[in-house]
């Protein structure tokens, strides 16, 4: 079960009905055991439902006709080319929004960066980690489907280098293996920061987490209906998470293990 802060970022899209099935299940599971979040959702949902019920009335207020005429008349206003360009340069929401959204994207989850964090992990803790990373997997893909961000191989590699001191080489020509890169995010979980690389394999969300400085035994676990495959490479632990047939998960894991370094 994820924590209250873990699901905090997706409660509002949950109320708005914008989450996919998996992420919704994640929030549902949390709500079953958390009265505080349940009360929050009840209140948020009641206010949302009320506004929706009265939305037509709230939108019934129209601009005065005189204002409509004045604004329409502005269409014929003489335009001085030079000043028009000056104004235009300041008013460019569609372009200025993008970097900000990307920053916000990171800020939503990235609360603290404290360098590489070393974990001590026992075998018994693996199940908890698999559950936690599966929750992150669902949450990050849910946010991604709302924000629709997409990063290139170069952007992800640069991020892994600067954020995790990891000279990662992402698989080349992953598309030939039906793997399409979505992007990367820093994910905070209780023992520190992990790198999260997201792909889609034939449309199925696939997460690869890199846990710096930890040694885990290789393992295959199940969490929330997902498969979690754990392996080590050059002192780093990797966890691959996906919800698909065993054959598909195995195929993806084999490809990633062979091509990601």
């Amino acid at each position: 079960m994820s924590s209250c802060t873990g699901i905090d970022a997706i409660v509002t899209p949950y109320v708005d009905g914008e989450l996919d099935h998996d992420a919704r299940g994640l929030v549902d599971a949390h709500l079953q055991g958390c009265a505080v979040c349940r009360a929050r959702v009840t209140a948020e949902r009641a206010a949302y439902a009320l506004v929706k019920r009265r939305q037509a009335d709230l939108r019934g207020v129209c601009a005065p006709d005189s204002l409509r005429e004045r604004c329409a008349a502005l269409r014929r206003a003489p335009v001085v080319p030079w000043s028009a360009r000056a104004v235009g340069a300041r008013l460019r929401p569609s372009r200025s929004t993008r970097p900000m959204v990307r920053l916000a994207f990171a800020a939503t989850v990235l609360i603290a960066v404290a360098g590489t964090i070393f974990y001590r992990v026992t075998a018994g803790a693996q199940q908890a980690i698999a559950a936690e990373l599966t929750a992150d997997h669902a949450k990050c893909f849910a946010l991604n489907s709302i924000l629709r961000t997409h990063q290139s191989v170069g952007e992800v590699e640069a991020y892994l280098r600067s954020g995790f001191d990891w000279e990662a080489a992402l698989p080349e020509q992953a598309e030939h293996a039906d793997m399409h890169l979505v992007g990367s995010r820093p994910c905070l979980y209780e023992r520190g920061l992990v790198a999260h690389i997201m792909y889609r394999h034939r449309g199925v969300p696939v997460s690869i987490f890199m846990l710096p400085g930890v040694q885990h035994a290789s393992n295959v676990l199940r969490a929330f209906g997902h498969d979690a495959i754990i392996w080590n490479d050059h002192g780093r632990t990797f966890v691959l998470i996906a919800k698909a047939s065993p054959e598909q998960v195995q195929q993806v894991a084999t490809f990633v293990r062979a091509s990601l370094h």
């Binding site: 905090d8 970022a9 409660v11 509002t12 899209p13 109320v15 929050r40 209140a43 948020e44 009641a46 206010a47 949302y48 009320l50 506004v51 929401p93 569609s94 200025s96 929004t97 900000m100 959204v101 920053l103 916000a104 994207f105 800020a107 939503t108 709302i146 924000l147």
Partner: peptide, 30 residues
């Protein structure tokens, strides 16, 4: 959410948390 973030000049996470708190405040007051 992303459009509102652009309008208000705040990150998208802030937009969502303001929507959430705004709705709850509305609920409490009503």
């Amino acid at each position: 959410y992303a459009d509102i973030a652009g309008m208000l000049g705040v990150p998208i996470g802030t937009v969502m948390s303001r929507i959430s708190r705004g709705r709850r405040l509305l609920f409490e007051r009503l």
